[in-house]
Write a protein that binds this DNA or RNA. Structure first.
Lengths: 231, 231
DNA sequence: TAATTATTTTTGTGATCACATTTTCAAAAT
DNA sequence: ATTTTGAAAATGTGATCACAAAAATAATTA
């Protein structure tokens, strides 16, 4: 079952073991360190994190409820396989969900937060420049998260992150087989729209960001990629 | 912490204890048997279900990831309180999400499934007629679920159900304080649109169904209701 | 050699226990 | 009467164990 590819990830004092296990596995899945179809065992993870089955089970249950893992009939747990249909479903849902999240954020946005968005976008560009795919991915998510969390009432974000989690493993093989993930984004357009508090324009920017970014994978390309990765 | 108000709920042979605990708690929350702000204890639930802490913890973790429960800083677990803002956020997201789910279902709909929708709608009307609020609620959900699951690729449904879960406890107090939950629906309109495979009309029907149904709660009414319930 | 059977190992599951923290409740002090 | 202190109870947490089912491996048979 592999070395889990889990960078240890710092653990704040007082954090419970099950929460730590959850965060660590989640991070690994999010950045594509675990491949679609790979199966995880409770004891294996417990051993890898030097803990015991009980907290690991809690972490795995949470991740399965978050769509990141699938529990099979034999009760074994694996990272879901990707298909072209599922990918299309995920991307179209992501578009709808994030447009809505963006709209609901606009009334609460502050100049201060927009400045932070600029910062994050700059950092992402740097990561892209040095071909640091994993960090570019994380910074891209950080940009979107920083926008949506302007809205103090957060019921959407967990769902958005669930989609990211479900896309993660596929992005992992994409990054492995495509030399450089094609990072186009419409962040500057979104920022400009935010400065004007133009809800429609912000939503349009997010829509374009997604459809031209991850939505750029065409059906044939996905199937080809999956075949390449032996899926 | 009360008697949990958990009707035993039949347990298929071979179902694990943690899954059973999850289903039972989930059902209770969904139909509003557990009040907002009520806190749950691992041992209490374990005792009520005649099992032990381990599987109950797994169930509670899942429910917290599904938005049905909130884990506090003191690690205690409770049903989230409702506020007018949160309610508005939930309903607007529900509208967007279910419209999208409906659209994605239309291409896969069959006459057979539409017939089943008619059946469910009839059953719901009967439940309403005999003032059986809980079952009317469940049958309403069943109607929506039966529509969305026409789409074989299901990433949306868990999110839709997460919203239902988060609205459940509030609906519980609503049913308690408003003699009869005002059940307006646009199911017949949705069915007619489905027969014509008219995606826009289906989405419009769902949108109206939600905004005239649960969306009918006005801000003042919600705050009043919460005060009445001692929230 | 291929298929079948038997054995061993792996794995998920649920109960139990000890520990630390938090909460609750009673007693004491201001 | 209110606050403070202290003891007792309740609670979340994580490790361990026994059990049953499943998977993997070895041995046997056709």
């Amino acid at each position: 079952m592999g070395n889990l590819a889990l960078e240890p990830l710092d653990r704040p004092e007082g954090m419970t073991t099950h929460e730590y296990a959850h965060r660590r596995l989640r991070q690994a899945i999010m950045v594509g360190s675990i491949r679609p179809g790979e199966s995880l065992t409770i004891r294996g993870i417990a051993e890898a994190m030097e803990s015991s089955p009980t907290p690991v089970r809690e972490a795995l249950r949470r991740l399965s409820s978050e769509g990141a893992l699938r529990v099979l009939d034999n009760r074994r747990i694996m990272v879901p396989r990707m298909t072209a249909d599922r990918f299309s479903e995920l991307v179209s849902l992501r578009s709808v969900l994030e447009q809505h999240a963006a709209r609901r954020a606009v009334p609460h946005i502050t100049e201060r937060r927009i400045d932070r968005l600029e910062e994050i976008d700059r950092a992402q560009d740097e990561a892209i420049a040095r071909k640091d795919n994993a960090n570019a991915l994380l910074l891209n998510q950080e940009f979107h998260r920083a926008l949506y969390t302007a809205n103090p009432e957060q019921v959407i974000l967990p769902m958005v992150e669930s989609i990211w989690l479900q896309l993660g493993p596929f992005l992992g093989i994409a990054m492995e087989h495509v030399a450089q993930l094609y990072f186009v984004d419409r962040h500057q357009e979104a920022i400009a729209a935010l400065r004007k508090r133009d809800e429609d324009a912000v939503a349009a920017a997010i829509k374009a960001d997604i459809s031209e970014g991850i939505g750029g994978f065409e059906r044939a390309a996905i199937e080809n990629l999956l075949r390449l990765a032996g899926q």
